[in-house]
Each structure stands twice: as structure tokens, then as C-alpha cells.
Simulated assay, not measured.
Amino acid sequence: MSSEPVRRTIPYSQVAQIREGREILRASAVALETVAHGLGEDFSGAVALLSQCRGRVVVAGVGKAGRIGRKLVATFSSTGTRAQFLHPVEAVHGDIGCVEDRDVALVLSNSGESDEVSEMLPLLAQRGIPIVAITADRNSTLGRAAEIVVAIGMHHEAGGEGLAPTTSTTVLLAVGDALALVTSRVRGFSREDFARCHPAGSLGRRLAGVADVMRTADELRIAREEVSVREVFATVARPGRRTGAVLVVDSRGALVGIFTDSDLARLLEQRQDDRLDRSISNVMTVDPLRLAADDSLERAVEVLSQHKVSELPVVDDQDRPVGLIDITDVIGLLPGEMNGLAAG
């Protein structure tokens, strides 16, 4: 038998795992609060330089900082600031040629002493490219080469033996995002601009215009207010997607009411069949909620959710119906409880 002592593994319980996970998150939160408290004029100076950039923000970093840099390029680009990633190693092998004199460099390095970053710095200086540095020490090689330093300080890396970049990378990312978003605000980047940059997915749909998704033309059921309910349902049936509402208009074509399938079902359930032969104006909802064609889909979702309605007429500047938003058209954008109503 072997004479080596038997090593016993101490069970790593779920309780211990959760405890350590919480400690890691708390360490990051403490670091972020420390950095937030210490932000000063250097941050606003960096924002000024980035917002006045007439070219691109060229983001550079190596290792974990490089991966964060690529993410920041996406943040800048999607919030109105043209940006490009430059890998320091590739920069010294010819890619520095992509940098123009109108650009600003945003260089990330926790230590500020990465060899690859240090080799790239003279190439930026030769081209007169101003550098914004996010680094722990303003007296590091990177800090001394930068026009503006957003110093984040040294932070103990959370978890394990404190070796893997964790807290420091969280801080780098957060400060970079803060620079991108404040720069975007200074540039006057609007919600409409954001929508144009994000046409796809649920976010894109939420920021799209009502006119992009509303039901129009032959899909609408429109009736004059003096027509009876029975006549309306006999004459305004429409093919295609079911529209669960009749838009009621006056002699000028302006919207004066709405009559839904639920209203019809209520009359039948209450055995008020005689009212079917009266004018629809007697049973419609008068002066219903409505949207303008240039309203956002987000606004439509807000109104549907707050007022618990299923249909919203869309009108032009003369209050004439031009479309309809049905709850089923925006079901994926609604809060959970409203999704349940739509499904029902």
C-alpha cells in the first residue's frame, strides 16, 4: 500500500457556494461604489474629448481588457458614436494604418504596463492621436502617455485566490459604459436615433413606430354612427387578420366611438338582442382612447397595459381612423399579466 497520506476533500456545499457568490458580487459592488465616488473632472474631460471627436473612437486593449474593449465598441456604436476596435499587437504589425488624425483613442489597461499596449503608444503619438486612458494608475506608462486619464484605482480581485481578473474587469467595463452613455447624451442622441440603430428584436419593435405595425386599409372595420349594429356586422366583415373592433365615425369621417367583439358578446349574454337593430352609437364606447400614427409602439404598449384595453384606434391629424393596434399585434412586448389577457 502507498505510504502517502490520504487527502480528504471538504465538501463544497450549496450554502458555501451561494455565500461565496454573494461575496464576489459584493466585492464588485464595493469597487464600483468606490470608483463612482471618485469620478471627477477627468471623467468630464474624457467625455468632452470623445463627444467632440470628428472621426472614430478607436478602442484598444489586450487580454481581458481587449475583450471589454470590443464590447465598448458595440456600446459606442449603438449609441451614436462611431467606434472601432484596434488590437495592440495587430497595431504594431500594420493595423495602425486604420487610425486617422480625426480619431480619438480609448485605451484600456488595468495595470497600464502591458507590453503590447506600451509598444502601440508611440505609434499613436506619432500621428497626434489624443488618448483617453482607463487604468488603475495615472503614473503608469499608459497614464503618462494619455491626454486624459480616468483613474480607477487598484482593486482586490474577488473569488478564488484573487488571481483571475474579476473586480478590475467589472470596473473597466462599467466606467467604459459610463463614458459611452454620457458621451451619447452630450451628442444629443435621441430615442428615435436609438430605434434606428436597433431595428431588430423585441427592443427594436418596442421603439418602432405605431405606423410600422398597425392594421390598415382593408383590415379595418369602419362604420357610420347612425348604422345599426346588425347592419354593421353584416356589411363590414374583412378578410385576413381578425380585427376585434368596429371604428365608428361621424359624417366628417372623424372617430367618435369604438364597438368591440366583447361589446357584442355582452349584449347577447344579457339577452339585449333588440339593441342590435338600434344605431351603433347607442352601444359604442364614446370618445375612445386613440394613438397618432407617429406615436411609438412603446407608447401603444403603455396605453394597452395601463387601461387594460385590447384595441387602440390610430388617427390622423383630423381625427380620422387610419389604423388599429390590436393587443395580439404587440403581445410579445406586453407585461406578463397582459400577455395572459391577450392569450385568453
Results as ranks from 00 to 15, higher is better:
1 M>H: 10
1 M>S: 15
2 S>P: 10
7 R>E: 09
9 T>Y: 12
9 T>G: 05
10 I>P: 03
14 Q>G: 15
20 E>Q: 15
24 I>G: 07
26 R>V: 14
33 E>Q: 15
37 H>C: 10
41 E>Y: 06
41 E>C: 05
44 S>T: 14
46 A>D: 01
47 V>H: 01
50 L>D: 01
53 C>M: 08
55 G>V: 00
57 V>Q: 03
63 G>W: 01
69 G>A: 09
69 G>T: 08
70 R>E: 14
74 A>W: 10
75 T>A: 05
76 F>R: 02
78 S>T: 10
83 A>M: 08
87 H>R: 09
87 H>V: 05
88 P>R: 02
89 V>C: 14
92 V>L: 13
95 D>K: 09
100 E>Q: 10
101 D>P: 08
101 D>Y: 09
102 R>S: 13
103 D>M: 02
104 V>F: 01
106 L>W: 02
108 L>F: 09
111 S>L: 00
115 D>E: 12
116 E>S: 03
119 E>V: 12
121 L>I: 08
127 R>C: 03
130 P>I: 03
131 I>G: 01
133 A>R: 04
133 A>T: 07
136 A>V: 00
136 A>P: 00
139 N>P: 06
145 A>M: 02
154 M>S: 14
160 G>T: 13
161 E>L: 15
167 T>P: 09
168 S>Y: 02
170 T>D: 07
178 A>I: 01
179 L>H: 02
180 A>G: 01
180 A>F: 00
185 R>F: 04
186 V>E: 10
186 V>K: 05
190 S>I: 04
195 A>P: 01
195 A>F: 06
198 H>W: 03
198 H>P: 00
206 R>Q: 09
208 A>R: 13
218 D>Q: 15
219 E>K: 14
219 E>H: 15
220 L>C: 07
233 F>R: 06
235 T>R: 12
239 P>I: 07
243 T>H: 07
246 V>N: 01
247 L>F: 05
247 L>M: 11
247 L>G: 06
248 V>D: 06
257 G>S: 06
259 F>M: 04
266 R>Y: 11
266 R>C: 12
270 Q>R: 12
271 R>S: 12
272 Q>S: 08
273 D>L: 15
278 R>L: 12
281 S>Y: 05
282 N>W: 14
283 V>W: 01
286 V>I: 11
287 D>W: 04
288 P>Y: 01
289 L>W: 14
293 A>F: 11
294 D>P: 05
294 D>I: 08
295 D>Y: 07
296 S>M: 13
297 L>H: 09
299 R>H: 11
300 A>F: 04
305 S>F: 08
307 H>M: 07
311 E>S: 12
316 D>Q: 07
317 D>C: 13
323 G>E: 03
324 L>N: 02
325 I>C: 03
326 D>C: 13
328 T>F: 11
329 D>F: 07
329 D>R: 08
334 L>K: 05
335 P>S: 00
336 G>A: 11
337 E>T: 07
338 M>Q: 11
339 N>C: 15
340 G>K: 10
341 L>Y: 10
